[in-house]
Design a protein around this nucleic acid. Sequence first.
RNA 1: GGGACGGUAGCUCAGCUGGUAGAGCAAGGCCCUUUUAAGGCUUUGGUCCUGGGUUCGAGUCCCAGCCGUCCCA
Length: 494
Amino acid sequence: MSDNDENHLIGERRAKLAKLRERGNAFPNDFRRDALAADIVTAYGEKSAETLEAAAVRVKVAGRMRAKRVMGKASFARLEDSSGAIQVFLQQQTLGEVYDEFKGWDVGDVIGAEGTLFRTKTNELSVRVEKLHLLTKSLRPLPDKWHGIADTELRYRRRYVDLIMNEDSRRVFETRSAIVRYLRAFLDTRGFLEVETPMLHPIPGGAAARPFKTHHNALDSDMYLRIAPELYLKRLTVGGFERVYEINRNFRNEGVSTQHNPEFTMLELYQAYADYTDLMEMIETLFQGLADSLLGSRKLIYQGIEIDLSQSFARKSIEDIILENNPDIDPMSLRDTLYLRRICDQMKIPYKAGDGPGKLQIEIFERTGEHTLVQPTFAYAYPAEVSPLSRRNDADPFITDRWEFFVGGRELANGFSELNDAEDQAQRFKDQVERKDAGDEEAMYYDADYVRALEYGMPPAAGLGLGVDRLVMLYTNSPSIRDVLLFPHMRPEY
RNA sequence: GGGACGGUAGCUCAGCUGGUAGAGCAAGGCCCUUUUAAGGCUUUGGUCCUGGGUUCGAGUCCCAGCCGUCCCA
């Protein structure tokens, strides 16, 4: 992390640039290419040397010089553009003075070349260059051509260098884009309307998380970066948009890890006249369709573990998962606060005085159950205590009609039948405010306008949130969320 | 928040029980008209993360801090 200061390599390149400036425009923008490297290879990669010679195909290519091999009066260089790379062949006898200048150009410079296609002695499709232009002088040397960029910190802080050096990295972000396009197409064909709701919230809501706080000067009021769009999207279902979704950033003022970035991308959707089981089916269809589309297979490898998306996804209740992984726990005492506290004490799980049986269950589940959910699994029947926006189960008011979806031991999505009983919602908000007053920083605020919206009548509905970054991690086999974020959060460098 | 590991040339990395700072690539110079990690000869390049301490002497040992990676909570 130290070459922000000048070094002799940069100094030499600056001197070269100074000479270019003396001779005229050092940053020309009048070269126009007429072919991409990959298109040339596709069109002519199979043609024989004789065919190419006879056809005398002229091309203009441009790109970053990634390799430079000078052999006296002839040279090869590899030009890389957004599509791929192609080799160019340069000769002193055809290029003259420009050839001598080229010998001083550096790997990393952006170059334009015009010439005809041919095959080298080793049969590589190449451009025999007749005109050559230096388009952009690169002042900073690229990392080692063989080892590339090994320092993960540098890869994240200088993503532009990572993208130059690392084709795998480029591919991850292309796949990310393909996944987001797939999500939109998937929902658009099902009659969902994409909307944009506020990022600046007067009251942070829709999730249990600590918000970033900011201030609106003109209004002289505190604002929060949103932790979830949920309450706004559900207001829209009140307004008559019966199927809505939003793909956008959420902000949570919490720790940074391989699974967490302070800002992350979430798909949230709401569908009227549907319940949480409908959304399980939707997730199943979506994940299988993504696998078909991206991988051509419903089995994928994530970090060495095979994930099988081809079968119907497992569905297990929270209480069953707890019992399955903790055979010593008494099933009859699973909702007994004092009993659960003793269990937590044994497991050294911290809890707060106000935590009821539902919260304690979830703590035990997160400690002992989550990591076992490797194959795609819906953990459902979340306690109402930890689900202040979910619809209570008709038969068992302790739980809600809510699931979280796990793959690889990691939560990817959260969905539930929506609580549309305004009076129940008001009471749940009050309970949250009590928890907040008791010191729970993640408890929710009372959102009076949201309750008012429900009082107008929200149709029965279900909704889900899907973590897009984690989804991309799964389908690109990326171990860290930073690998799927172009510019992940880092401590400031300066 | 706790633990493990790491930070040495532009890049990738060596550097043993403390004793003059090393290699490959990149870069500068010379040679070379079919290379593909091109090759040959040659030269340059260092706040060993920072600050203390121990010592005749610290890249190396000790303490504190900064930055990062991974694991755990």
